[in-house]
Structures are given as structure tokens and as C-alpha cells.
Design a protein around this nucleic acid. Sequence first.
DNA 1: AATAGCGTTGACCGATACGGTTAACGGAGG
DNA 2: CCTCCGTTAACCGTATCGGTCAACGCTATT
Lengths: 206, 206
Amino acid sequence: MNPKFYDLPQERKQAILNAGFHVFSRNTYKKSPMSEIAEAAGISKSLLFHYFHNKKELYLFLWDTCAKITVEEMTRSGAYEQNDLFGSMDYGMQAKLRLMKKYPDIGLFAVRAFYEKDPEISADIQKSMGKYLDAHAAKKLGKLNPDDFIPGIDLYMMYREMYWASEGCLWEYIQRGALDTDAMEKDFRRLLDFWKSVYLRNNREK
Amino acid sequence: MNPKFYDLPQERKQAILNAGFHVFSRNTYKKSPMSEIAEAAGISKSLLFHYFHNKKELYLFLWDTCAKITVEEMTRSGAYEQNDLFGSMDYGMQAKLRLMKKYPDIGLFAVRAFYEKDPEISADIQKSMGKYLDAHAAKKLGKLNPDDFIPGIDLYMMYREMYWASEGCLWEYIQRGALDTDAMEKDFRRLLDFWKSVYLRNNREK
DNA sequence: AATAGCGTTGACCGATACGGTTAACGGAGG
DNA sequence: CCTCCGTTAACCGTATCGGTCAACGCTATT
């Protein structure tokens, strides 16, 4: 990969990344043409090949960048330091929102890359998968104090439920196309309030 | 579309449908080759063109069949007649499971078809969309008796939460590849129990 | 045994799309 | 005027696309 890519103005770099995320997230690796990516990025195919020597290199670069950016944004959000479960969920979601605003197709791309099985790349993807798997979830679950929640609740199920719901909420907006991040945040807030009102013990006694 | 398709043995019909669902669900309409579908179905491309005169016809047929099959299975499941929310959720999920067992890619296909924007077909899809939109959800929500649930609960949010969670649960299994329906059903039962224990009022007082 | 009908296929068609290369353009700096 | 360099149009050989067509092989009837 040509280091000159890094010298590009932020705007153009982002356009290229987003073009890549977009095309690769809508088709198999093999059926995602470089020409289409170049066109989506607003540059010529030749220039794209100037920065990335071949398709595989671009794809793997996108994958790495995707992981890097996500981890960065999540760390910066402070979600991992937060002790309160709902607070950490809140920060995490905000981080995801910021990410989706900058890279609208990064989520879809990550999912497809995760399950891509083209022999030309699947091995490389699997190798660097570790960065993505969220080890925080298990830790977080273990640290929860059952006394904070309604008696007898299945905490593991609660966590899965929350994860699925927030993911589902996100997807609903992603699929719709142009994403309205303000509406999304409002929606997510309502989810958070719902959780608190249902799962927390002190809220019950009011 | 050639009516002789209906005379085919069930097994072969299903193989063709599944091949179509599979290929179209993994790529854009334009990038989903008929040859690949034929190969996945275990027949020659020529024979596929014998039953469906062109790609568009096949795609639209798949879309209609997808809607028809789903409505059929859901109706037969008795989910719509069930008054109890959780019972109806239970029956609905069972129906989906049976469906996914027979047509593993029908869910993915439906989602992609829903958001497909190729001008050659998007209009036709949008036109027949009504069959899919679930009008039952709103009705169901209106009929719920708030006294059955914990005081002050946001019933709309509860419904969305349940929908997302069950959808998320399904996806987790779909993506994994070969789907273990027994494990899925067990998992879903646990979800149901969790919901009952958290949302229902009488459960709280024990 | 010859024939007719039918499900099925391999081979083929023209058009296009693919990944990747190359030579050249055009503007800025000396 | 020359040189550098970001950028591109044009090009290459190959592969793939949707769709067609003639023929194969099997069965049933004559």
C-alpha cells in the first residue's frame, strides 16, 4: 500500500474509505469491482490502483482501518472506564453514532467482512479477528452487583437483550439509507430509559 | 414464468428457490448471476431459463413466493389468533424457525429485496410491499391490557425490544452458518421466560 | 423398430465488465 | 523551458454476463 495515501487531505481519504466500505458491504468480495469503488470515491480507477496495488490489499487495508477506527472511537468515548452498565452502554452507543456519521457503511462492512468466505481473503480476515471480539462484555457482566437490579433477574439474558435491542435499533436506521443521527440518538435514549425503568431495583420501589 | 415449474417434485422446487434466495441475498440484483443460481440448485443454466424466462421474472417470483410462504406459515402457526402476547410471540417464533429450516436464506433475502434499489426491479418490489408490512403489531399493541404488566411500563418500547431481541437471536444463529434449530428453540424459550419474569406484573409479586 | 414428445443439457453468441498496466496529460516550481 | 508528480484516458487479455439453440437421451405410443 502506497504511503502517499496518508498524505492525502482528510476529506479525500475519507471519501475513498467510505467508497470501499460501501461497495464491499453490498456485494461479495469477488463481485465488488475496483472501478465502482473509484467512481464512488470520485477518482479514477488508475489512481485507486496507484494507492493500493491490488484489490486484496485495499480490502485488507479497509478491514484493518475499520478495526482500528472502531477501537479508537470506543476507547476515546470512555465507555470502557464507566462502571455503571447503562452509562457504559450510553457512551458506547454515542461512540457508534459518531462513527456511523463519519463512515456510514462501516458497520455493514464489518459484518460482511466477518462472514466473508472467499478463499483469497478469508484466512487473512480470520487471523486478525481478535481485535474485534469484545472481551469487555464478559468482564462487565461479572462485575455487576445483583442488588442493583430487580430480584431474581437473569443478568446474562438482560445483557444479551440490551445488546440485541441496541443493535436492532441501529440496523433499523442503517438499512433505511441516509441516517438521521439525531432521531437515532433520541430513539436510543428512550431505549436506555426503558431499560432503567424495567431492570433497575430502585426504580421499582417508587 | 413457466407453469411446469409447479409440477416439479417438491425437492427440486425447493432446491431452486433456496438457490435463488441464497445468491440474491448475498449480492446486488445486478451482480447475482443466473449461472450461479443454477449451479447452486444443481441444474443447468438452460433449464433455469426454461422455467423462468429471464432474471427479473425469477427475482420477482422469489419475492412473491417469499411473501406468500411467510404469510402462510405465520397464519398456520396460530400466532395471530393467540390473545396472550407472549404466546403469540412464541408461536410466531416457532413458525419462523420452521421456515428457516426449510428455506435457510429466506430471511436474508427478504431484507435485501426490501432495500434493493436497482431501477429494474425496485419499483415492482415497492408495489407489492404491502403483503410484508406487519399490520398485526399495531393491533396487538392496542389490545394489550396495561394491568397485566408492571406499572408504568412503556408498552411500545417493550414490544420493539422484544422484536429486536428475537430478531437478533435469530440472526446470531443464521450468520453462524448451519443452524441448530434445537439449540435455537431452547435459547428462545429462555428469552420468553426472561420477558415474562421482567415485564409481567403477577410475576413481580411472588 | 420407428416415431413423437419432453425434460434436460453443452455449446455457443455478442456484449460487457473485470483487474491491472501504460503512456501521456497538465499544472506547479525552478 | 524543463522537471516533477498527481492524475487520468485508453488500452489489454481474459472472464463473465443474460439469453438462445440445437441436440441428446429417455419414455410412451404406434
